[in-house]
Design a protein around this nucleic acid. Structure first.
Lengths: 222, 222
DNA sequence: TCAAGTTTTTATACACGTAAGAAAAATAGC
DNA sequence: GCTATTTTTCTTACGTGTATAAAAACTTGA
């Protein structure tokens, strides 16, 4: 009776924790206390193990974050109703990715580590490449176009996240503004003209405008 | 005779190191051994001081890297001959920044920390904003257009640097390819069509194409 | 039953960024 | 000369990611 019904065929010491468990616990910690509180030691403690044991299920912390991103994407990316017009389909698909990731600011640290290739995001990539193709681009140019859209999207998130972080740091927030107040109107007239409005212009959310411009440009036959 | 000719007017213990010295030494270390070898402890040793002494001249390591970026920009950004055509002026200015930064891959770590606001880069920003304005955009839209160009440019560098890093890590390089080999042609036909070429298409340098498309789109009156 | 092999877990240790506060080196007022 | 004040430097310590190697917990074959 006490003997295991299935005799176990796998070799070696049986694992006490699993990769799924590691990712799930990490997700919980991030949700509860923020990404800053996610340390390998804390994760190990929460899971009832030791820090180095995690490294048998996850290559390193960076991979853990990538897994967390994949997990998040699989969990929250919902396929929206797409318009029939291919150009609009591109815009809506890219915006959907952008919106999902922007809701999740800690992701940015991972973006620099990997582009978004989670299986659940591929559908959106397909829609973008398909839209570009349907508008007359060759498959090669469509892939390049998708990459341009991704560069723009990732860059927007990275730069804005950095700006937000800088605002939180506070005291140094005035430094960048100082650069602008010291502008010589003779040398840099355009910047001098908008210097006082720069901060507010920079805060504006113009992702969609820029995206539309980029897509228009990609589709324009030159 | 031995008494100091100038009696010193500044209060407190005289500094033994300067901010300039810190940045210069950091630059030397990065040039010689790479950015990975730039640690506060090593920098302190190279400068003949202690790690914590550095923190009186630099807020933290991130600020040190930003200063290093500013230093690099001031040192290497040369103002190119710009074409008369405003549209081309935009493209050339953005490309100049891109090229200068791409030559300096460690910069990417800083890009996420700060957008490029080194005084020496402002001239390029001016050229871009000016070009956009001359093409008929309002000052506000010109600034937004510049931001879009910067998002695209920064994103390109960040994503490509991450890809390069991933290739160096090697063994995991095959993982992303595996995602593509497992694509179901019925569900994702476009991606299946280019799956085998994806890796090579991704390596292509298409920065300039994407930049032109973006600028075209920004300038197109909708 | 026991030794060998395999996989997972644990213990120990290192270099890192940097917080906190003591110590040092100067000036200013008495 | 002496003390207070101000600025910079140094000492010590903490928590971090993770390398290395030993220990533990299994299966397999003799």
């Amino acid at each position: 009776m006490p003997q295991p019904s299935v005799p176990r065929k796998t070799l070696g010491r049986p694992p006490r924790i699993s990769r799924e468990q590691v990712v799930a616990t990490a997700r919980r910690i991030v949700a509860e206390d923020g990404v800053d509180r996610l340390t390998m030691r804390r994760l190990a403690a929460a899971i009832g193990s030791t820090p180095m044991a995690l490294y048998h299920h996850v290559r390193n912390k960076e991979e853990l974050l990538v897994l967390l991103l994949d997990d998040y994407a699989a969990r929250t990316l919902r396929r929206p109703e797409l318009p029939a017009d291919p150009r609009e389909r591109i815009v809506v698909s890219a915006s959907a990715i952008h919106e999902a990731l922007a809701d999740c600011p800690w992701i940015v640290e991972v973006l620099t580590a990997d582009d978004l290739m989670s299986t659940s995001a591929l559908w959106f990539v397909e829609q973008i490449v398909d839209g570009l193709t349907e508008c007359g681009l060759t498959p090669e140019r469509a892939v390049h176009g998708y990459r341009a859209i991704w560069y723009y999207t990732a860059g927007e998130m990275v730069v804005r996240a950095a700006a937000a972080r800088r605002r939180t740091d506070d005291d140094r927030a005035t430094y960048r503004e100082r650069v602008f107040t010291e502008i010589d109107p003779d040398e840099l007239p355009r910047l001098a003209q908008v210097a006082d409005r720069w901060a507010s212009l920079t805060v504006d959310d113009t992702y969609l405008d820029g995206l539309r411009a980029l897509v228009d440009g990609l589709l324009a036959t030159r």
